[in-house]
Nucleic acid binder design. Structure first.
Length: 376
RNA sequence: GGGGAGAUUCCAGAGUGGCCAAAUGGGGCAGACUGUAAAUCUGUUGGCGCAGCCUUCGGAGGUUCGAAUCCUCCUCUCCCCA
């Protein structure tokens, strides 16, 4: 994997660059749509490629492990072949499920036992196992097995958890270094900074992670309910320590405003379920602000979803029609909303990149943040 | 023509003397959602000067301290037989 930074904003730490993987290039800053089970819900790969123009999508180790199972994906020739995406992919390690499925797992120094949410069967995930599975799945970027801590999280817990995540990282690296991708191309392991909302822990974690010299580095355990100011504070502190010349990935973020602010702090990569999940639930992100398309006020608004938009959903469908589809529970509603939202996120990233290249990012960002978070 | 069943808050449908402004579901309205156990979940849904009051259970009377619930008549709907 190769990362080159081509431009830096004149104000702040925003930068534009390109990540090169064996499955193709990724211009940064980048937003990566989440495709947990190997599919971005409600979408065809064709739409993701040709209409939304996503350069990379996510998959999830825990979910793909349970279904369809590692062997199936490996037999298919890797996740990109199995799902027909054929472009770069990133798999999360299952660390987020330690947080999101905390009631059906048991956490120990050695690893985590998950009780499958599908059939209750027990599965022991260790750092080594998380790497082995991700080797078989074959994503271009794979993640270290970490614990995503909840919020609020007391200092002692956050500190112990961070130490475990660090020890797990060493085990991940060891396993990663003595294995190869069975599909013949190269994979890159990203370690993850933890430390909850405690600055000293975050700094220590960032130092620890930076010292590993990985191809890219991630920040996890944020956007789990803490005030945004804390999230920005932690991100800024960590970015100051993580290597400048490697991509920085802020996991699970976020709203358009969160993303624009974090780009200013030096983040290059993002992922979030918000444009897809919230889209399926009727929330539309637009260039003028946020719309709850189910609201009665849109019932006779025949204007296009996004008059200036470039994706077909933006100008081919009206707000009134999309509201009708949601109210009628038509599955086309989820499809249109998802394409629209992801199209918007992609546009936002492209625009951010152009502003960075032009050296005008920071001023542009201030105007956009206010505009994008308005409720229409 | 004869016999039977029934009319409940937007709809369906409980309730058959006080705990009923009335269960539950649907629909409506609004909200939540940040490395996806989510095409999910939550709240609300007669009116008002709202810890109280007013108007509601087909219509009109009546019984009772008290009625959506009991009685009388009326109106309408559905089913069966001819």
């Amino acid at each position: 994997m190769d990362f080159t930074i081509s431009h830096k904003d004149t104000n702040g730490s925003a930068r534009a660059g390109t990540i090169l993987t064996d499955h193709g290039p990724i211009d940064t800053p980048v937003f990566m749509p989440v495709g947990t089970a190997g599919a971005v819900k409600a979408l065809h790969m064709k739409e993701l490629r040709e209409d939304i123009c996503a350069p990379i999508i996510l998959g999830n180790t825990y979910h793909l492990f349970l279904r369809p199972g590692v062997n199936i994906v490996e037999q298919a020739g890797g996740i990109q072949k199995f799902n027909g995406w054929n472009r770069p992919m990133l798999t999360d390690s299952g660390g987020f499920q330690i947080y999101s499925m905390s009631d059906i797992r048991k956490f120990t120094e050695d690893g985590v036992v998950f009780h499958s949410h599908i059939d209750g069967s027990k599965h022991f995930f260790t750092p080594e196992r998380a790497i082995d599975i991700q080797r078989s799945l074959g994503a271009d970027i794979i993640m270290a097995f970490d614990e995503c801590t909840p919020y609020p999280c007391d200092y002692t817990y956050a500190s112990n958890s961070m130490e475990i995540t660090h020890r797990w990282l060493d085990r991940c690296l060891e396993q990663f270094n003595k294995t190869t991708c069975p599909h013949g191309y190269s994979q890159n392991l990203f370690p993850i900074v933890q430390g909850s909302v405690y600055k000293d822990l975050r700094l220590r974690s960032a130092e620890y992670i930076a010292a590993k010299g990985a191809e890219g580095n991630a920040i996890g355990g944020l956007s789990v309910g803490e005030p945004v100011e804390m999230m920005y504070e932690m991100t800024e502190a960590v970015c100051a320590i993580l290597p400048y010349d490697r991509p920085r990935y802020l996991m699970g973020v976020g709203t358009p405003a969160n993303i624009l602010e974090s780009i200013s702090l030096g983040i290059d990569m993002f992922d979030c379920v918000m444009p897809t999940r919230n889209g399926r639930n009727g929330m539309l992100f637009t260039r003028n602000g946020i719309i709850n398309i189910r609201n009665e006020k849109w019932k006779d608004d025949f204007s296009p979803l996004e008059p200036e938009g470039e994706v077909f959903t933006d100008y081919e469908y009206s707000k009134a029609y999309l509201r009708h589809l949601f109210v009628s529970k038509e599955m086309l509603a989820a499809m249109i909303a998802t394409i629209h939202n992801l199209g918007f996120y992609m546009w936002l990233m492209k625009e951010a990149r152009n502003q960075i290249i032009a050296g005008t990012y920071s001023a542009w960002k201030d105007v956009m943040v206010k505009k994008l978070m308005q409720r229409l």
